[in-house]
Nucleic acid binder design. Structure first.
Lengths: 203, 203
DNA sequence: CACGATACGGAACGCTGTTCCGAAACGCAA
DNA sequence: TTGCGTTTCGGAACAGCGTTCCGTATCGTG
């Protein structure tokens, strides 16, 4: 923070080349800035350029694109995860806590353009991004879900925490780019369905 | 007037002077086959190779990738659209009809690998694929939704047909590639939430 | 001062969707 | 039949992506 180092002029610089740590921080700040302006899908070269380094440097610090994204958003995901138990303790009912937490998650995903879309497991290889989100947030979501369901008295579990979390994430895809689409509304309705008594689904 | 006419206005005569237009049909069949094996995101070159033509030929018949996808699935989308009113007429209640139609839509999306993911408006340009799906299916979804809501007596509309349809489509993303994720279940739960009385959302 | 280790930048690779153009195949008229 | 215009064909070429690779510049140290 106290040493931002925003110099980007390509000429006349005899600056740190062999030092290990500076680039990493520059990269993270540059990536965060570019993600805000150009979305999470911004080209790698744009991030490297913003940081004033080559793509080779970027890839040594973050071997894959997903790991860079994880690094940029790690503390926000952490904050979201930690908000779960706190909301559960502070809210009047577990359902209120669950809804508040989910709203928090949705706002996080929607404000980072393209993050929800980049969250796909896609196929085959376990994406570092997908894995991190799942590992960190599924337990939190699960405990909130269990508490809310216990309150409602819904014994049967129609959908597990992983499915619900992935569903919420999917609902956020494209939300920022489409004014006609209200992801937050839909997510709350999904929660309503998840918490509804099982017999409610039969006509 | 009685000119020998080295210049012919291409008004009515659009006769194929070159090879017959067999290519278009070959392309559609090849694309359908490739989509089944390699998913909707299969490379354009693979489709062209399968059809035994060059990519130039493919792009003259289908100026963009999305239009090819639309052409391949047009009759299935049409069938899905036509199933809406039929289900509404044949089902015991509108909600049953809505749930059955949505299940149909989900099965269609999930079985075509990657179709749901390719459905994004993404950004900026109105995708031909997205437009076609929306134009054809939103009215159908809307009438089913209205009927089901009228039956339930839920006056307020928490989410319009476009939002619900897009939400359902989003929930199907990655469903085929992830055994732990049950899109169909989630979609039915979302419908439950959509049809639930408005006051149900407040804790 | 010299030498090895290492982080650096950016060219290069393989892949994508899309555009472009020379060449070939056909119908029609002379 | 022969020639010509028209239209389609095939695939090279272009632009952009994520990722890999390597010559080079700089640092820490003996």
């Amino acid at each position: 923070m106290s040493h931002p180092g925003p110099e980007q002029q390509p000429a006349a610089r005899a600056r740190p080349a062999g030092r290990p740590r500076r680039s990493q921080e520059d990269l993270l700040q540059a990536a965060a800035a570019v993600f805000v302006t150009s979305g999470v899908d911004a080209p790698v070269r744009e991030i490297a350029a913003k940081a004033g380094v080559g793509v080779g440097t970027l890839y040594r610090h973050f071997p894959t694109r997903a790991e860079l994204v994880v690094a940029v958003y790690r503390h926000q995901v952490e904050a979201c995860a930690e908000a779960g138990p706190r909301l559960l303790a502070e809210s009047p009912t577990p359902e209120v806590a669950l809804r508040a937490w989910v709203a928090l998650f949705v706002e996080f995903l929607v404000t980072k353009h393209g993050l929800a879309g980049a969250l796909h497991a896609d196929d085959a290889g376990p994406d570092a991004l997908h894995r991190y989100f799942v590992d960190r947030l599924v337990p939190v979501c699960g405990s909130l879900l269990d508490a809310a369901r216990a309150e409602r008295g819904a014994s049967a579990s129609p959908a597990d925490a992983y499915t619900v979390l992935k569903g919420v994430g999917n609902l956020c895809i494209g939300a920022a780019a489409d004014p006609r689409y209200d992801a937050d509304e839909l997510v709350q309705l999904l929660i309503s369905g998840v918490l509804a008594p099982v017999g409610d689904r039969d006509a």
